[in-house]
Amino acid sequence: MASPRMSSRASAYSALLPAFIVLAVVYIGSTVWTMWMSLTGSRMLPNNNFVGLRNYEILFSNDRWITSVHNLAFFGVLFVAISLALGFLLAVAIDQKVRSEDSWRSVYLYPYSMSFVVTGLVWQWLLNPTLGIQKLVRDMGFETFTFDWIAHAETVLYCLVIAGVWHAAGLVMAIMLAGLRGVDEDIWKAARVDGLPTWRVYASVVTPMLGASFATAGVLLSTSVVRLYDLSVAMTRGGPGIASEVPAKFVMDHLFERANISLATAAATSMLITVIAVVAPYMYWRTRVAARGRA
């Protein structure tokens, strides 16, 4: 006969069973399998012929992959920087006791509720050179107006950035606004008594206090950058040419269309390493902050 204590513990394990299975099969099993396959000569079907790092050599001499990585870096820097800046400004603006605050907030945040596919298709339509914004402005009399970024390899990434910022700036705004609202009311009062101008309080006192909000928003945006797939697929299909290809799409195409598993898994492993490089310092910082909070 198990004691009641034992049965409680067994129940706790039973509740955690799905999570432990996921841990073993998905988090550990799949990751290791993916990493292993990147070291084999697998093509359409997986095999275990160890080839060392040959796939990585092929990968990093593959034009499409190199372009994808460049694109991602370019997109990522612009997207994260602009989203953070715009989201922060919006949060500060809304924090000025504006009228109908809820309506403004809803307007900035609603794009985040929609999928990247929807986002991509709407912006594809808006940026359509023949019938979209370019035509609109030309019809207004500015006949030499040109806004056909989506049709050119050199500029198509800006289009992805516009759509991405449109989708995510509201999220940054919401996180920043929560941070701003968390600032002790007395600090604002103290600053007023000290005679600090509002902009100075934001610059010297409040913004430094929002470190955690900036980090949270920055990490959320960065992970969505690495995951970038749907937006590129829906908006440009990687084109023109390979001008808007991204790593996630490279992996998917090589897995399911080009039947080159080893190359795809090598690419996926590279993505994994990149993410770990971003997330690990952040997690470390968070646990340190948490530990300091407890002390």
Binding site: D184, D186, I187, K189, A190, A191, R192, V193, D194, G195, L196, S204, V205, P208, M209
Partner: peptide, 28 residues
């Protein structure tokens, strides 16, 4: 408030958290 010839001490201290003690006092 700054022009009234007053100074104020708050219940929650309301110190500027990212500034040193010295800077807290001198900033205004």
């Amino acid at each position: 408030p700054k022009d009234r010839g007053i100074a104020m001490v708050f219940q929650s201290y309301a110190l500027y958290p990212r500034m040193s003690v010295k800077k807290n006092m001198s900033f205004g």
